[in-house]
Every structure is written in structure tokens, then in C-alpha cells.
Amino acid sequence: MTITCPECGAEFQLDSIEVGEIIQCPECGVELEVLETDPVKLALAPDEEEDWGE
């Protein structure tokens, strides 16, 4: 499917995505979170917080 980066407007292809997945725009490198898949809705991924980790 064709995806449009909400940050830079680049269009790129992905085979399969799932809600909650983080993808990276191949043009601007920004991380995007998949909010919906049908139709595809993307948003900037949440910033890493201080207590994130393993």
C-alpha cells in the first residue's frame, strides 16, 4: 500500500502494517505510529520518555 508521510509528504510503499506499529519514513527519517490501517492513518510516534526501556 502507498503511505504518505504526515511530516514531509513523501510517498512510500509498505507491504503490511499493524495498528500500533512504528515505521520510519525513508525520506525524512521521522518515526511514525500507525493509528489506523483502513484507511491508513499515521501520526508522529511518541517521544521516548525517561522511564522507557527494557
Binding site: E18, V19, G20, E21, I22, E33, A45, P46, W52
Partner: peptide
Amino acid sequence: VSQLREEEKLLLRAFASHGIDPVR
């Protein structure tokens, strides 16, 4: 989950092999 990384996607597929679709 917080977000689905590669590991979480693999875990979801592994659950699917048991016929289980976890509540997220």
C-alpha cells in the same frame, strides 16, 4: 504494550500459531 516493535509483532504471530489473538 506501548507500541508494536519487531518483537511484539513476532509475539503476536506466535500467539496466532496457537489460534490466539491477544487483547491489546
